[in-house]
Amino acid sequence: MDGDVIKVPAPGVSKVIDRLLASTIGQKAIMAVTGFALVGFVFVHMAGHLQMFQGPEAYNKYAHMLQGMGGIKWGLRGLLLVGVFAHMWAGVRLMMRNMSARPDNYAVNKWLAASASAKTMRVTGPIVLFFIVYHLLHFTLLKVSSQGFEDMVYQLNGVGDVPDVYQRMVVSYQNPVLTAIYVLSVTLLGTHLAHGIQSMFQTLGLNNNTYRPAVQVASRALALIAVLGFVAVPLAILAGVIK
């Protein structure tokens, strides 16, 4: 009789990959780990971005340093790209599954506990993605909202002519429309993170009833810090504090 033991599928290394890719918990773990990497990028990016307050010399020097990282830069860019795609892949797969698990909805459909941030994850996620693409076209590829960027160069001490990314940013966010798009997108990113960060802990099992309130508060606080850190610069430019 083998009915009295718990049976699991046949062993094998490929089962590890199978379980991660095929199970709902595995897919969520992929979302959590990639989410962790992307949150890391958000904060590094924000810290760099706040150097706008230190003036053109410091900011252009920082940008020049990043551009000089060569292989490391491309390695990190590659990781971020993989992270974004894996996050999207797992998110879309789970969303399709979740939608098909309830084919008929309730006549009276009520929410009992979820936060606004949790409810809007599948809306804020794609919007943030669109913003990232637009933001790259704007400042990295110079394809949109970037008239005259090529001519903005800066004489960096001991280096010579470098792209004047400080000036490019100032010119861009003196435009209230661009600032509005930026502030809105970053606020939605913050909304995504307010649920996303705590969800990450829960999904990876790094949570219990003792930590839970702290994880929740920390998640929202980090999201708020990210939003404030990002919007400070364009708003300071629009207000004429940075020029």
């Binding site: 709902t24 918990i25 897919q27 969520k28 773990a29 789970l94 599954r97 979740n98 098909s100 698990a101 309830r102 929410w111 009992l112 506990a113 979820a114 949790a118 409810k119 994850m121 649920h195 705590q198 969800s199 802990f201 829960q202 999904t203 990876l204 099992g205 790094l206 949570n207 219990n208 009833n209 839970r212």
Partner: peptide, 28 residues
């Protein structure tokens, strides 16, 4: 069944007040 998105609706509805910490333990 669908996957968990940590809405915590289940915990609110559970007549036996099972906490979502059991989901974290299962995930772990």
């Amino acid at each position: 069944f669908g996957g968990c998105t940590n809405y915590q609706e289940c915990e609110a509805a559970c007549p036996k007040e099972i906490s979502v910490r059991v989901i974290a333990e299962m995930n772990r």
